Amino acid sequence: MKNIIAVLCLFISTFTGAQTLKVVDVATEIAPATSWLEVIDSGKYANSWQQAGAFFQENVPQTLWVSKLQQVRTPLGAVQSRQGVSRQVLSSIPQLPDGEYVILEFQTDFANKAGSIETVTLKKSAQQWQVIGYFIQ
Rank of each mutant, 00 (worst) to 15 (best):
I4P: 03
L8I: 13
F11A: 14
S13T: 12
T14R: 06
T14G: 15
T16G: 15
T16L: 10
L21I: 13
V23R: 12
V26Q: 10
A27E: 12
E38R: 11
E38N: 12
V39Q: 04
G43Y: 03
N47C: 00
S48H: 12
Q51G: 07
A52Y: 10
A54M: 09
F55E: 05
F55A: 06
Q62C: 15
T63H: 06
W65C: 09
L69D: 06
Q70W: 07
Q71T: 15
T74K: 12
T74V: 12
A78G: 08
Q80E: 07
G84S: 13
V85K: 04
V85E: 06
S86G: 01
V89F: 15
L90M: 11
L90V: 05
S92G: 11
I93A: 00
P94L: 07
L96G: 00
D98P: 08
D98Q: 10
E100A: 09
Y101T: 02
L104V: 14
F106V: 13
F106P: 05
A111W: 01
K113S: 13
A114H: 11
G115L: 01
G115A: 01
E118N: 13
V120C: 07
V120N: 00
T121F: 04
K123T: 02
K124C: 10
K124P: 14
A126T: 06
I132Q: 00
G133P: 05
F135R: 07
F135A: 10
